[in-house]
Amino acid sequence: MVVREYDYIRGNTALAPERKVKEQEVKKKKKQVKKEFDWKNNRVKIISSAVIVSILGVASLSIDSYVYKIQKNLSNLEVEMETELAKNEAMKVDLLKVSSLDNINEVAVNGLNMTYPDKSSSITIDMSKNYFDHIKDKKETNTKTNLIAKIANWMN
């Protein structure tokens, strides 16, 4: 069978004849257009995916570096804390040594040349009697408190 390029209509030929397009050519063109469109879409998808992955990578690296800095500071603080605790323990031991009564007695007698008091060098005072009657409190000499006391007594 012969495939003709033009399809004629019986009878009236006044209209321009339409050219037959082969279905295979149409399918080829559609496939080619679809391929180009898919390739353009794939390029856009690949580039956008690459951009997103790179942004996430940079964000991850920055967060990791921040965490690393914090961990480093924490380890430095822990080392400093251990040394300060060791110094504190050493100071407690020294304080216990110095605060013992034997050590205080030894420093007083040998280092400061102090002696125990004798009965002849000591004075005893009877504190049951008020020897300081003549000294007035500063509160009583204050005029404001006297004025308030006078007003309070007058109201009663």
Rank of each mutant, 00 (worst) to 15 (best):
K72Q: 14
Y68I: 00
V79H: 11
E78K: 04
L85V: 05
T124Y: 08
N105I: 14
E106G: 02
K129Y: 10
L101D: 14
L112H: 10
D126Q: 09
N76P: 00
N76F: 03
I135K: 08
Q71A: 13
N73F: 02
I135N: 07
S121Q: 01
S99I: 04
E84L: 07
A108V: 05
A86Q: 12
D137W: 03
D102T: 09
I135R: 05
M114N: 08
A90Y: 08
N103C: 10
N103R: 15
V67C: 02
S128D: 10
D126G: 04
L77M: 09
K87R: 14
S75H: 12
K136F: 06
V79Y: 15
Y131R: 11
Q71R: 15
N105A: 15
K136L: 08
K87T: 06
L112T: 03
L95D: 14
A86N: 09
T115C: 05
P117Y: 00
S122V: 01
K69Q: 11
V98W: 11
V98R: 09
N88H: 07
M127A: 11
G111T: 04
N130C: 06
A90E: 15
D137R: 03
L101I: 12
E78R: 04
S122H: 02
V93M: 10
K97R: 14
T124E: 11
I125D: 01
K87W: 04
D133G: 07
V109M: 04
E78T: 02
V107G: 00
N88P: 00
N76I: 00
A108H: 12
Y68A: 01
S128H: 05
L101Q: 15
L85Y: 10
K97C: 05
S99V: 05
I125C: 02
L85P: 00
L85S: 11
H134P: 00
S122L: 03
I123V: 06
D126K: 05
V93L: 14
I70H: 01
N76C: 01
N110V: 04
V98Y: 13
D94A: 13
L74A: 12
D126A: 06
E80H: 02
